[in-house]
Design a binder for these strands. Sequence first.
DNA 1: CCGACGAAGTGCGGGGCACGCATCTTTGCG
DNA 2: CGCAAAGATGCGTGCCCCGCACTTCGTCGG
Lengths: 211, 211
Amino acid sequence: MGLRERKKHQTRAALAWAAVRLIVERGYDKVLVEDIAGEAGVSPRTFNNYFSSKAAAVASRHLDRSLRMADGLRARPAGEGLWTAITEAVVAEMTPGPEVTSQPRPDRETWGAGLQQMMAIPAIQAETLRAAAVAEQELAKAVGERVGIDPADDIYPGLVAATVTAACNVASQRYAAARFTGQDDLETSIRELLVDALSQVAAGLPPPGAK
Amino acid sequence: MGLRERKKHQTRAALAWAAVRLIVERGYDKVLVEDIAGEAGVSPRTFNNYFSSKAAAVASRHLDRSLRMADGLRARPAGEGLWTAITEAVVAEMTPGPEVTSQPRPDRETWGAGLQQMMAIPAIQAETLRAAAVAEQELAKAVGERVGIDPADDIYPGLVAATVTAACNVASQRYAAARFTGQDDLETSIRELLVDALSQVAAGLPPPGAK
DNA sequence: CCGACGAAGTGCGGGGCACGCATCTTTGCG
DNA sequence: CGCAAAGATGCGTGCCCCGCACTTCGTCGG
């Protein structure tokens, strides 16, 4: 990869990160495109060469993460069961790294509150969901490869991908909600939430004694 | 319901419908808010009293339909199995009424092409997904009522709702794709697609001989 | 090594859009 | 019949998104 492409990725990442950081700190409508561009050291016009909106910049991180899930799934050993492979690939991407968990507690709470504010903005929700939908296509391909079914021929890979995405959304939502409730021994429990949700959908969600 | 509220609903419906019709006919960026408002016999400013954007107006029909699904589920007989009830409620809302199927064939194809164009616009996709997500909450409540589990206590209702929504999305997507492929003996097969997708997710999507 | 090519960054300008605010009109109710 | 509330409208503003033209700088063939 040449210098050119590397700089491009750097700029993209800088813009996306700046967008998230500033918006979490200040609130969505108190951050101008100008601010984000400035933070990343480029002109405002350039921002829109990378992202079609503020919301898209924020969602791009989610998109990238979701795309890495598909890659992660492809990287799982071939002998592994489908749902085990999926669960591992998902958990690997959804677990916060040390750059988060090593933050001092009060900072993390401030950040979490800001994050919730941000995710409450309709435009952000919409773009985030769209990002998930885009990545879902890629996930469907990866699932198709693993089980040997072309997504174009059979609905199965698409259904698995959609279901996995849905389970992730529910789990994250619940994770965020629990934080608000107060209890936050959740550093590990995001994993548990995901494992639980995925195993339930894999098992087929039977109605009566469902749990 | 007083006259006031009825007029409000009328105006809302007129705006939403005008938005869809004009955009399908002309293309998203060749329709101004002004046009939609004019079509509905209301001032441009009023449009934004009802919808926060063009895309939101379009998605509102999807939102309403999805909300009716939750109501439809509540209306199913109590003895009926959960997934049967869900399937019926979903199919009831997703089946196009006679006002569509009675259109002359060429008109319907033109309309379908325009619809696909519209659904290809990122902003529309995003808002549509968001509408589905909002309605999903309501669906989760309805599921919770039916199985006697509070969505706040247990993840199950949320998972069912999310999974159902996902299955619907996959089915519609596939329905639209098939139309593009040329074969359109699909008037009934949207039903079959839904039944198939829902039964698969209900059964748990086992990997090997999945079909 | 160099020169042309093409991709990325930038500045400018315009068409809309979303919304706050003040005002006018309609509705429902006592 | 008249008034309080809710809705519709008009106006003004700040921002956004993008098209276009121009500059800058990696990249690659000769």
